[in-house]
Amino acid sequence: MIILDSLTKRYGDFTAVAGIDLEIGEAQIFGLLGPNGAGKTTTLRMIAGILRPDSGRVLVAGHDNVLDPIEARKLLGFVPDRPFVYDKLTGAELLRFSAGLYGLTGPEVEARVDELLELWDLAPWKDQLVESYSHGMRQKLIISSALIHRPRVLVVDEPMVGLDPRSAWLLKDVLRTFAQGGGTALVSTHTLELAESLCDRLAVIDKGRVVASGSIEDLRREARSETAGLEEIFLKITRGATDSEIARVVGD
């Protein structure tokens, strides 16, 4: 469903994404892990069509998202890492606007708006300006906006930031149901418990390159530790700070 072919993005002299190759199939949740600044957000933004790659390509259901961007984007729903939306629209207006961008209107959209707002407990806030929403409520609104046109691919950057435990549980359920229905969810996260419990396959990115990918078992083999949890595997692969380094920085 998603193919990344030698995907590269540079910001001046800095290479944020250095030739990533990945293939992500249908009906699965794919996790993208990596330390801060590894290139996860840039990769997701290129898949969503927000950033143009310097070289390489992104194929969404066979559509190149630079050469055939409209068809590729029609299939996608994107949830960014920071929930910036139009503060001066109400929640319902924002969802209607989002549906309109995908060419949807009429009673079906109204029903879908109500359905999504109910799902995320936002119905009482339906006609309130987004500027009065909390961070978590905005996050839920953006997830609703990504789902409004029933996409086949969901690209989600840091989905749990700001969500209360009930909403976090609900999101996991939504993503599972989405994948069971044949959808592809690509999720970038720092929350290793979430990745471990939710994702069918994973890729670890470091310094703009994929350093490991596969199922959790594949990653265990990669890290040469058959019983390790994802946290230990992640630290081994990405060479986390040693205890002595931590003591030196935090200690007196």
């Binding site: 969503a48 927000i50 068809e71």
Partner: peptide, 14 residues
């Protein structure tokens, strides 16, 4: 559009 530009950027808009 500022930081909300991602919404237009990711939508099927020319």
């Amino acid at each position: 559009e500022g930081q909300t530009l991602w919404l237009l950027g990711s939508a099927p808009l020319e």
